[in-house]
Design a binder for these strands. Structure first.
Lengths: 357, 357
DNA sequence: CTGTTAGCGCGTTCAT
DNA sequence: ATGAACGCGCTAACAG
């Protein structure tokens, strides 16, 4: 009852396995027209499906692309995954998924698993961490990637290079201008807002979060504004919610004279911003009446949120696509000096959630 | 520069490949304690990573689970994917992802690709279609699945069995009580709403959509209400938006005497509902003041949407988990007669978007 | 242009 | 308890 093999097909067609292979799977030189047809029919009638494992073993290349995310249900990663998936399809490859929760240890395991499967390339989409507790994990992850690359694997990382990874062939980084974009967001916000700013950030050491915090502060400084206080919390909705509760208390508590300067909250990603907004609302506050709020990423599913969330648009899907393509050189016969892997740019998008009115 | 092999490890440890294999990968009988240690060290120092392709070839089983979705960026599928991923991890397997856009032809290709990779099991998460245009595609898909199962593959489908698929060993269906839940939703809605109902459904022939439409109509009927008009549109946000525009015109246009009965709109999934709501808003209408609206699925990311969306909560993550587990028998040594694959239940969740006030 | 031979890296019988 | 030999299904280098 096992699937039929190439040998069986060959036998039925009355040819050698090699010939059958040449007909059915892409080979340089094509057999005669008559033979070709016979083999095709035999394969058809047997319902032959090539064994990719065996092909991989023989060719030492698996047609697999490994994708590492923190959480596939997070719309940020889901969007990137879609881009990766598309690019993979262009390359006639399949995507292997690994969800790690963000820890370097689990990421290392994922890389090892991909290496074991002989994935042709690996895309790492989650933010890097440089916390001291992750130091050892990062080192091991770096070592694993290093080995993977040395064995001919291709790696693309979104955002930041893995801490401690040796730059080498096959190791690509799709840089995301988080800092610069956060700076511009701060600039535009500062231009239309008189009150104070507060930043709701992820845990210190999360590079993506840190970049955005730093950029935002820079933007404030250049605008002649005082630095914003930074609240550290989890890098997800519930972290945003917690911060929101805290801020709500603060907004309502003090001698809130009618002229108390309103707060503008910058959450370092949209999902956190939504959480923060939910908390404020739960505490009876209105946006942007009682406080303004801005996010980052411009998650598609959140675009219908009201009041519309000011944010920075990131081409998530493109990022996934670019990362995947970077692991393959230029798509189908283009040239150029390892042409810029396609610069990622974002766009500040001010909406109602930060309107002063 | 290629990765080191088991043979190399064995040589370095001064043992035979067979022994090395027994030590490094799970085998019944364990070699001597001293040998074991030597092999371990050799493997360590060489950075040995087993070649899963070769293992798979030898054992004819790949440790792979194939997951088929319409679109991984759709939060519905992303949630299911998370569940699948978790269950896969329990089974020490990896997830292979295929995005098909929903067409049976692409689904067939995905199944073939999974079969080629010798995936141990396949989870199909997208809704089935029984449109006549998909008839041939369905038949081929069914045939492909059939063959896959006959070769020992395990299949789990979420919602409906593939149209035309032969029921057989290894073919599981995780049933989702869409119809019943829609019926209950209609009942609860009817109890608190005097106006008319309209249904925003997906294209006719999409089984999930059809079930929900049918169930809703049944619920209305049992409540003594007239059948609702059904608008057919795309099964996604933009489809919902289009329907919303149309409905907005209708709501505003007629001799809208102050006592015109308000409309309650049931969109067959949350994403469509959000689209519809966005369109109404864009046309200057308010929810639930000018019209009520309800969805289906209770997508997590959409829970912070305001006004809070009435919907039917579906345990999406569990569904993914159950489907995956169904392909494996009971998890790690449980017993019972192919115990109910874990019944999926949902819960009507009324929120502000359908408040009569 | 076709068939033959020899591995790819590993698990698993068998003997020993 | 260990090692030798074979086969998983296929591709690639040869030979014809």
């Amino acid at each position: 009852m096992a699937a039929s093999t190439l040998t069986e097909v060959a036998r039925l067609a009355g040819v050698s396995p090699a010939t059958a292979s040449r007909v059915l799977n892409g080979s340089a030189r094509k057999p005669g027209k008559d033979i070709t047809e016979r083999v095709r029919q035999a394969a058809e009638s047997l319902g032959y499906i090539p064994n990719a494992q065996a092909q991989g073993l023989a060719k030492s290349s698996s047609g697999l692309i490994g994708l590492i995310v923190h959480d596939i249900a997070d719309p940020y990663f889901a969007a990137i995954a879609r881009g990766v998936q598309e690019a993979a399809r262009e390359q006639h490859k399949m995507v292997l998924l690994a969800t790690t929760g963000g820890g370097p240890t689990e990421e290392r395991e994922a890389v090892a698993a991909f290496a074991a499967r002989r994935a042709d390339s690996i895309v790492i989409a989650g933010s890097r961490s440089c916390r001291t507790e992750d130091q050892d994990g990062n080192a091991e992850l770096a070592a694993e990637l290093d080995r993977y690359c040395r064995n001919g694997g291709q790696v693309a990382v979104v955002g930041h290079p893995v801490v401690g990874a040796t730059v080498q062939e096959g190791y690509h980084v799709v840089r995301v201008p988080n800092q610069e974009l956060a700076r511009r967001l701060a600039a535009e916000l500062a231009a239309g807002w008189d009150g104070d700013f507060v930043i709701v950030g992820g845990p210190e050491g999360l590079l993506t979060s840190d970049d955005r915090v730093r950029g935002f502060q820079e933007g404030l400084e250049r605008a002649g504004r005082p630095q914003a206080e930074v609240l550290r919390t989890a890098f997800n909705r519930s972290g945003g919610y917690d911060a929101g509760l805290q801020l709500a208390g603060r907004i309502k508590a003090p001698g809130s004279g009618e002229a108390a300067p309103k707060l503008c909250i910058f959450a370092v990603n949209d999902v956190m911003a939504i959480g923060t907004a939910a908390a404020l609302r739960a505490e009876g506050l209105r946006i942007p009446r009682d406080a303004a709020i801005a996010g980052f990423d411009d998650i598609e599913t959140l675009r219908d949120f009201r009041p519309a969330l000011s944010t920075v648009r990131l081409p998530l899907e493109d990022i996934g696509r670019l990362a995947t393509r970077a692991t393959r050189g230029r798509p189908d016969g283009e040239e150029g000096e390892e042409a810029a892997p396609g610069a990622v740019t974002g766009e500040v998008t001010l909406r109602r959630s930060t309107e002063a009115a």
